[in-house]
Design a binder for these strands. Structure first.
Length: 321
DNA sequence: GCGTCCAGGTCTACC
DNA sequence: GGTAGACCTGGACGC
């Protein structure tokens, strides 16, 4: 009989963050988006999640200390075996990058003060940072399953991928279900992915992506170390990854408009839903860049996490699209 | 019940 | 360099 072996704690450290930083709003966004896996847990101020780093699975227990203005995050890492010093440092760097602990928001809030769309919502979620994805492959899975499908179907594909090809991380008396590895998907046939995860035409793309990553594609940390344009160009070489997906995979670098968000920003910028939302995407992206510059990624996240308040303000139900 | 339509894009084949 | 058409397939809808 297989035992539910729990993995044990291997290291802990503190992460200093640049204020203002609200940990809960940052990892547990009001609109419900997850940080690393849909099955991570946030209970009574503590956050249990998981990630893969240099092929190993880790359980993560993160707890905010202090306040939004004097913030710090206590991190505990759980793993099957010992973790060498280099990987500990690597994990720490990954967390800093993915939790945006070193990002100064002063400039964004100054901009928001004079912006009709952002003024109120920046105050409402003061201290909320954007995050980046811990692991590249899982971000690519999200991008691929969001393509050309209603949200319900995308969720179904992701759930089935985790259920049939993913792994459980057991630690600290919690179970966090986690995404499949690149290795697992690289050696799975598109037909099997279609049958078991209902991926449709996306199955072949996902296998090709997994194989490209297995063959030595840069990691997420390495992509963030590149110039943004170079990183995007690299992502675009992956099969099935286009403009929208590349910007979704590296949030903060662009303005990943799809048909759904184009409707929302159409209302906010022009007072109405564009007649042809897909066609309007390039113009709306340009408008966002002119209006918010390098902070457009932040504006994107604040807007999409404050739809109820914005709906009241503009008199259109933005949550209904 | 059944048929039809299309979705939180991307790629290819043609101009 | 720009743009129709095809792409899997489960729901949502009309009848």
């Amino acid at each position: 009989v297989e035992k539910n072996l729990s993995i044990s704690k291997v290291c802990s450290f503190e992460l200093k963050t640049v204020p203002p930083y609200n940990f809960e709003l940052t990892v547990h966004k009001p609109a419900g988006w997850w940080w690393s896996t849909p099955h991570e847990k946030f209970q009574q101020g503590t956050f249990w999640s998981a990630t893969r780093f240099t092929k190993n699975l880790y359980g993560l227990k993160l707890k905010p200390q202090g306040t939004t203005m004097k913030p710090q995050i206590s991190c505990q890492v759980f793993s099957e075996g010992r973790v060498i010093e280099a990987d500990q440092q690597g994990l720490k760097g990954m967390l800093q990058r993915a939790l945006r602990t070193d990002e100064h928001l002063t400039e964004f809030y100054d901009l928001a003060k004079n912006d009709d769309i952002l003024r109120d919502i920046a105050k409402e979620h003061y201290g909320m940072h954007t995050v980046s994805w811990p692991e590249l492959f899982t971000a690519l899975i999200l991008a691929v399953t969001l393509q050309m499908a209603p949200m319900k179907r995308s969720n179904q594909m992701m759930d089935l991928l985790i259920e049939n090809f993913g792994e459980d991380v057991r630690f600290d008396r919690k179970v966090v279900r986690y995404w499949p590895s690149t290795k697992k998907i690289a050696f799975t046939s598109p037909e099997e992915l279609q049958a078991k995860a209902k991926l449709g035409y996306r199955a072949a793309n996902l296998v090709a992506i997994a194989q490209a990553l297995e063959a030595g594609f840069p990691s997420m940390d390495e992509l963030y170390a590149m110039a943004p344009e170079e990183a995007k160009k690299k992502l675009l070489t992956l099969r099935g990854i286009g403009d929208y997906s590349a910007e979704l995979v590296m949030p903060g670098m662009g303005f990943p408009l799809d048909v759904w968000s184009a409707k929302i920003f159409g209302v906010l910028f022009r007072g109405k839903v564009p007649d042809d939302p897909r066609q309007a995407i390039p113009e709306l992206k340009k408008e966002a860049e002119e209006r918010w510059g390098k902070w457009r990624g932040y504006a994107f996240v604040y807007v999409l996490n404050c739809l109820p308040r914005l709906s009241k303000k503009v008199g259109v139900d933005l949550t209904a699209f």
